[in-house]
Simulated assay, not measured.
Amino acid sequence: MAYRLSLLDKALIPPGVSPAQSLENTIALAQRAEELGYHRYWFAEHHGIANLGSSAPETLAAFVLARTSRIRVGTGGVMLQHYAPYKVAETFNLLSTLAPARVDLGIGRAPGGMPQATRALRSAPAGAKPVSFAEKIHELEAFLTASLPEDHEFAGALAAPQAPTAPERILLGSSVESAETAAHLGWSYCYAGHFDGDPDRIGRVFETYRAITGRTPLLAVVAFVAGTDAEARRLVGTLKLYRVRLSTGQTVNVGDLAMAEEFARQSGVSEYETEEVTPSVLAGTADHVRAELDRLHALHGVEEFIVDSPVPGFAERLASLEGLAREVIANPRSNILQTIPA
């Protein structure tokens, strides 16, 4: 089986551990991942959540780039709706100048937090015209490639410095529409199976992206390795997610029904619907998780998995990424792509 392994980190802050120590542990995990041969190390973006330290993933990425030498590092992803595309382009052009051919710019459209945090992030003047995600992502691509039309309102604004190698652009999503957007932009695409592991939906999205580009999306999954299947399942726990559809048309994924109710309240909405969605969770011994990855590879043609291991303990997460690397990356039968440069 031929596929790469990469990692997604939320900079978890376990109970009783200081944020400073937790972030040091996060850096240590990234450095160990590089030693073990993982292909990428991404940081998610979350706001206003006390046990997550990844509120500024581009800052964490910069720090890890400075403390590593080979592994690709980036965001999974920047929540573009909160920011000016010009500033995002400047930030990632700068990172790509500092670390050529090692920077990933992953973009997502979710809020990454509750509505109050979203309002605090945007702080838009009253009456300001809202800008759609589609407008922002096309504008971001134009800034990154210095290709703004001459009649654009920001024509002439250079997102300096111009990097010798542009950051790889990846759109994160779980829909046919987002796959089409990525394909038409010429971007890579990562299906968020760690949020929605429905195999039929994964298949449709993969087919859509592959038909347009001839390339295969990345697949994000929850995967965790321990000494026994029972221990792995105990540490991961029962992961449930709920898709909330507000009467305004907004859709967001949250961790439980109480969060769904609070999201609606902060949004000023009394009517909403919830749907339980099942993330792709692979938990067990190393050979069990590898068998599940092999199955997904065979089913969908996955060439790279982005592994999310949502267990707060540093020692347990370190043991998991080491065990998975020994089983998959260090095994010549299954790591053909691991040794091929991006």
Rank of each mutant, 00 (worst) to 15 (best):
L5K: 04
A11L: 00
P15K: 15
V17H: 09
A33W: 08
E35P: 00
Y41L: 05
L52W: 00
A84K: 00
K87G: 12
A89F: 03
L94W: 00
L98D: 06
L98T: 12
A99K: 08
G106H: 02
G106V: 04
I107Q: 01
G112C: 02
R122K: 13
F133N: 07
A134I: 05
A134M: 11
E135R: 14
I137Q: 10
H152G: 04
F154G: 00
F154V: 03
G156R: 13
A157D: 02
A160V: 12
Q162M: 09
A163L: 01
P164L: 01
E168Q: 13
I170K: 01
S178Q: 10
T181V: 10
H184F: 11
D198A: 14
D200K: 10
A220L: 04
V222G: 01
V222I: 15
F224C: 02
G227E: 11
A232G: 11
R243H: 04
T251Y: 06
G255I: 05
V269N: 05
S270I: 14
E273Y: 02
E275N: 09
P279T: 06
S280P: 07
V281W: 12
V281P: 00
A291Y: 05
L296T: 03
L299N: 05
G301H: 02
P312H: 02
S320T: 07
E322K: 12
